[in-house]
Structures are given as C-alpha cells and as structure tokens.
Amino acid sequence: MRVPVVNVVAVDAGNVLHAQLPGADFVHACQAVAPRAGRSALQAYRDMAATVPGWFDGLMALRNGGMRLLGMKDLGPLRAVQDSVDPRPGERLGIFTVQQCTPDAIVLEDDDRHLRVQLALQWRGDLLEIATVVHTHNAFGRLYMLPVAPVHRWIAPHLLRRQVGAYMG
C-alpha cells in the first residue's frame, strides 16, 4: 500500500478559517490528496476521529485530568464523536462545538478560559485539508500551548495520513 503524502500548507484565503487568522497565537494546516467518493466534511471528521490511536486517547485522559484539577473543561476522548446525522451550529460533536457544517467544510470550536481553538476539515477539490487556529486568552493559554503545539504539529498530519490511507485501501 502506498503511504499518502501529507503536506503542511498555509491557511490561505480559500480556507474557511482564513478570517480567524488576525491575532492568532497558533496556526497549522495540512492537506493530502484523498478520494472523496461522496464523503462530506462531517464524514471525513468522523473517519479521522475513528483513526485516533489509543495512546492519543491516553494523552487526552491525562490532559483532561489535569485540566479538571485546574477548573477547566474535561473534553473527553477525541474519538467520542456522536452519530448526529445533521449537526447544527452550537451542538456538541465529540470534544468540539459545531460552528459550521456544509458538505465541503466543517468548522469546530472549543472555547475555554485559557484559549479558543478552531478546527476545520475542508474538501478543496481532491484535497482534504485540516486547519487549526488557536487564540490564547491569557498566560495560562500560552503556557498550555507550549507542549500542545508540537504534539498538534505531529498528530494532525499523522491522523490525516491514517485516514487517507484507509480511504485508499
């Protein structure tokens, strides 16, 4: 089986999160050629969540325990995506709240006392793109992002590669 190529890219004007860039403290996007085969952005997100390795859920459990002690949200595991057929803006979908959901793009968000993170999965022709934009609210948010940013820069392309590889059989 051919290993899918994932490229880190800029969040350009064609990305649904482009308007969120001013003042962002962290921006990351990657894309890969993927057979769409009628898959919506929502289905792509569900497929990605389903490929999360168990060790990453372990990291999320550690994160959640620590954040709970600090009075922050326990988000639960990343792969906990409900089977909502037609999620509406404002509804929870796994660890995020839906901001926008069209066949071509889904924008998800979590806003807590320390930061606001937005994640988008977007079909751009035969490319599937994952973009993340983070705005920190305070010093704790900036401190929180110190270990999270490098993990995110590794896990997002890893999950995209796993997902696209599953699509390709």
Rank of each mutant, 00 (worst) to 15 (best):
H137Q: 12
S84D: 15
L93C: 06
G141L: 00
L21E: 03
C101K: 02
R2V: 15
A13W: 11
A41T: 14
D74Y: 01
V9N: 04
G23H: 09
A131I: 14
R92A: 14
A131M: 12
T51C: 13
Q99I: 06
L146M: 11
G14I: 07
A37C: 08
D47Q: 13
M67P: 09
T51G: 12
E129H: 06
N7Y: 08
Q82T: 10
M168L: 12
I130F: 12
I130N: 10
A166L: 10
W154V: 14
P22M: 04
S84I: 15
V148Q: 08
V133A: 08
G125K: 03
G14K: 12
A80G: 10
D12I: 00
L128H: 03
D83L: 02
A19K: 09
W55M: 04
R68L: 11
P35R: 06
A50S: 14
Y167A: 09
M1F: 10
P103H: 13
N64V: 03
G125Y: 04
L70M: 11
L160T: 06
W154P: 03
M67S: 15
A19C: 11
A49L: 07
P53W: 06
A50C: 11
H18S: 09
V52D: 00
P4A: 11
A80W: 11
L115D: 01
R113G: 09
C30V: 03
L75H: 13
R88G: 00
V9A: 07
V27P: 01
V134I: 10
P103R: 10
R116P: 04
G90M: 06
S84F: 15
Q82R: 03
G90S: 03
L62I: 06
P87H: 01
G65S: 09
G66D: 02
M1H: 10
G23D: 09
V117M: 14
Q43M: 14
T132S: 15
D74I: 03
H135T: 09
V98E: 01
V8Y: 07
P147D: 02
I95T: 15
L42V: 06
M67I: 12
L108V: 00
G54F: 07
V85W: 07
R39L: 13
H152C: 03
G141A: 05
T132F: 06
L59K: 08
L59N: 02
H137N: 10
R92W: 13
D110I: 08
L70A: 13
T97R: 04
L160E: 02
V85G: 06
V151D: 11
E109S: 15
C101D: 02
P150N: 05
V6C: 03
L21N: 04
D110E: 15
L143E: 09
R153M: 08
V133N: 03
A50F: 09
G169A: 12
T102P: 05
V5Y: 03
G14R: 15
E129Q: 12
R153E: 14
N64R: 04
T51P: 10
V148D: 08
M48G: 01
D112F: 00
A139L: 14
D12W: 03
L115N: 05
Q20V: 05
I95P: 15
